[in-house]
Amino acid sequence: MGEPMKTMEEIQKEIVEDFSFFEEWMDKYEEIIEFGKSLKGLPEELKTEENLVRGCQSNVWVVSEMNNGLLHFEADSDAIITKGIVGLLLRIFSGQRPIDIATEELYALDEIGLQAHLSPNRANGLNAMVNKIKLMALAHRAKEEAEG
């Protein structure tokens, strides 16, 4: 069984600290946009209906893979701000144990002032994406238990 490099709690703290240096919203968004641009995203063949998290305006695709007891995610979006925030979510959730992913309380985005992006009325699929990540984790967890 692999061990996560850091706990999700540690990563969330790091993110909050990283963003605490930005006082202006513009700098914050610039950071997210640059982060979004730097992510490699998904190859076209993985941007399928099956991997799509339905959002009204921006599409988000997410795939997962178990490796040595840890669940890894990769994701993409057609909107760059969404992609940047998705990147933050992956930084938190990817490479963790499924049981931890399913139970981790996400607070970092709230603290850095991006909670509006996770509200159900932001039709960008992010809210749905967090739910999907947790469901995927639960599904893997159930599978692990069944396999003993």
Partner: peptide, 13 residues
């Protein structure tokens, strides 16, 4: 090459 959503978010800010 720019998503409408991204523009909407910045304009809102």
């Amino acid at each position: 090459g720019v998503s409408a959503y991204d523009v909407g978010v910045i304009l809102d800010q």
